[in-house]
Computed example of a mutant assay.
Amino acid sequence: MPDYRAHFDFDIRFANGGALSGTGFRLDLPSPDLAQDDIARLLVTHLGLALVDEVALRGLRVVSEPHRGSRGVDTSTGLGAGDAGSRTRIVDLSHPIRAGLVTYPGLPAPTIASHLTREDSRAKYAPGTEFAMDVITMIGNTGTYLDSPFHRYADGPDLAGLELSSLVGLRAEVFHLDDAWDQSRRGIRPEILADRDVRGAAVLLHTGWDAWFGRPEYGSGAPFLTGEGAEWLIENGAVLVGIDSLNIDDTESGGERPAHTLLLAAGVHVVEHLTNLGAVPPRGARFTAAPPAVEGFGTFPVRAFAEIPA
C-alpha cells in the first residue's frame, strides 16, 4: 500500500495571542481521503502546539510519497494492515562484499582465493561429496560494517565484548533526509532529529548517498552527522547510529572525528555504509547488525537488516 503526504501552506492563530505561518509544508497522512479539518488537526499534533484557535490550510495537495515520520501519524503497522499477526518483512540493508570492492577510498579492497577447490576436494571425500573452502583477506572497514568502541579507544570493548542485546532487534527510528540537505549544508544537526523519541533505539540516517557506493563520486561531498548531532543522540539515549554515507563524520574537515569520538566513548555503536534505507518506514521496524565476536578487533562487516511488520 503506498504512503501519502499532504503539501500545503498554513496559517495558525493561537487563542492567547500570536500566530504561526508556514510555506511548502509536508505532512504524512494515514490515508489519502482525510478531510481538510483532519489534516489541520494532524498538523497541530505534529508541531506539538497548544491553545490553537484556528488553522487555515492553503494550496492543499495530497500526493503519493514515502512517509518521513510525522508525529501523530501511526506508520508502524502498515496504516490499517489489520491483524497481520507476527508476520514480518525483511529488508536487507547491507552492501554485498566482492573481490576488488572499494568501500572507502584509500583502503585496500578485499581479495578472495581458494584454499580448497571443489575439484581438489573430490580426492579427500567419498564419491559424490565435494566442498569449497575459500580465504578472504580484507580490512575490517569493508562493505557495511560496525564500529565498536575499540575502533577508537584502546581500552574500549572489542567486537567480542559487545552485548548482543545492543545489536539485535533494536527499535528503529529512521530519519529520511535524502531531500533535506545540499552540498552547502552537509552536516546533520540536532534540530532535524529533535522531534523523535530515540531512547533505546537504533537511529538510522537515510541520506540517499548509497546511490554512489562503489563509484568515485561516493568519496567526496558526503553527508555526515555533526558533533552536536552526536551529542544530542547520546543525551537522548540512542544505542546505535547508522548512516548510508561514506562516514559518520566529515572526512573533508581534517583529522578530527567528533561523531566517532563522542558516540564510541558513550558506548553507542556506529554502522556505516548502509543501503536501501528508503525501503524502511520512519517507525515500526526492528534493526539488527551483529558482527562476529572477534577479539582484539574494532570494526567488521555486518549483515544489517530491518524487520518490518507485514
Rank of each mutant, 00 (worst) to 15 (best):
V302I: 05
A132T: 04
V268Y: 05
L116R: 05
L60I: 00
Y153G: 03
H269L: 10
P282G: 12
L116N: 05
W209I: 08
E130Y: 02
L277G: 06
A238D: 04
F287C: 13
P66S: 04
F10T: 09
S21D: 09
D37C: 10
L274K: 11
V280F: 03
F213G: 07
L27K: 10
L264S: 12
Y104V: 09
A306Q: 00
R122F: 03
P127R: 11
D178I: 00
D249P: 10
A304S: 08
R122G: 00
V270I: 15
D179N: 14
T129H: 06
V168C: 11
D179H: 14
D158G: 06
G242N: 08
L193R: 13
R171A: 15
R215F: 13
G48R: 15
W209N: 11
F131P: 01
T77H: 15
R118T: 10
A6Q: 04
R199F: 01
R118L: 13
G208V: 05
L43I: 05
V44E: 02
G242F: 00
D249S: 07
L277M: 10
R61M: 06
E228I: 12
G221P: 00
F14S: 00
D197C: 11
P282T: 10
L170C: 14
D250P: 04
P66W: 05
S21G: 12
Y145W: 08
L51Y: 13
P96V: 03
A194I: 09
A290R: 15
A202Q: 04
R215C: 08
I234A: 08
A279K: 04
T129N: 02
R68S: 12
T88W: 04
V241A: 04
G255E: 15
